[in-house]
Amino acid sequence: MGITQLRYTDLPIGDRAAFELVCARHGFAPAHFEISACAKSGEPEDERLVTVRRGGWAQSYHDRHGQWIRQFEADLTCRFFK
C-alpha cells in the first residue's frame, strides 16, 4: 500500500475555493500558507491527511469530506497561524 503526496493544486477545486474564501475572511491569501496532502492508495479520497504550514507553525487535518477546511478556519479564529 503506497502513499501519494499531493500539493495544493492537486486538491479538488471545491476545496481550493473554500480554502481561499476562508483565507480572505481572515485577512490572508492562500500564498501565505503551504498546503500538502497525503493519501494511502486504495483508500477513499476523503480519508487523506491535509497539512497546512505557515512560518514555524504546522497543523494536520483529516479531510473527511471537507472537514479540514472548517478545522483550519477554527485555527485561524484562535490565531494559531499568526
Rank of each mutant, 00 (worst) to 15 (best):
R48D: 00
A37K: 00
R25P: 05
D46W: 12
C23D: 04
G56Q: 14
A74N: 14
A18Q: 12
K40R: 15
R64P: 00
G56R: 13
V22Q: 06
F28R: 09
L49Q: 10
S41A: 11
A17C: 00
G55A: 02
R48V: 00
R53H: 15
G42F: 06
L21W: 04
R64I: 03
V22I: 14
S60Y: 09
R25C: 11
V52A: 03
A29D: 12
R64D: 14
P12E: 09
G55P: 03
L11Q: 08
A58P: 00
R53A: 12
F33K: 05
A29P: 00
E43D: 12
H62P: 10
V50R: 08
E20L: 05
E34G: 09
S36Q: 07
P30L: 09
G14A: 13
Q59T: 00
C38F: 08
A18T: 04
D46P: 00
S41K: 12
R54V: 03
I69T: 09
V52F: 07
D15L: 07
G27N: 05
R25Y: 01
S41C: 02
A58I: 01
A39E: 13
D15H: 13
E20A: 15
A39C: 10
S41E: 15
Q59C: 13
A39N: 07
S36L: 02
G66E: 05
D46C: 05
D46N: 12
S60W: 03
A37Q: 02
D63G: 06
S41M: 07
E34H: 10
Q59A: 14
L49W: 02
G14V: 11
E34A: 11
I69N: 02
Q59L: 09
D46T: 06
E34D: 13
G66I: 03
A31Y: 01
L21K: 14
G56H: 10
P12G: 02
R48F: 01
F72V: 03
E45P: 04
D15C: 04
S36F: 04
A74P: 00
A37M: 10
G27L: 07
K40Q: 13
D15T: 01
H32G: 00
S60P: 09
V22N: 03
I13L: 07
K40T: 09
A29E: 14
R16C: 06
L49M: 08
R25E: 13
E45A: 13
A58G: 03
G66M: 02
A18P: 01
A18G: 02
P44L: 06
E20Q: 15
G27R: 08
A24W: 05
I35A: 10
A58Q: 15
R70F: 10
W68R: 04
C23T: 10
R54P: 02
L49E: 11
G42I: 07
I35Y: 06
H32Q: 14
G27K: 10
A24P: 01
A29R: 12
A74L: 14
R64G: 02
H32W: 11
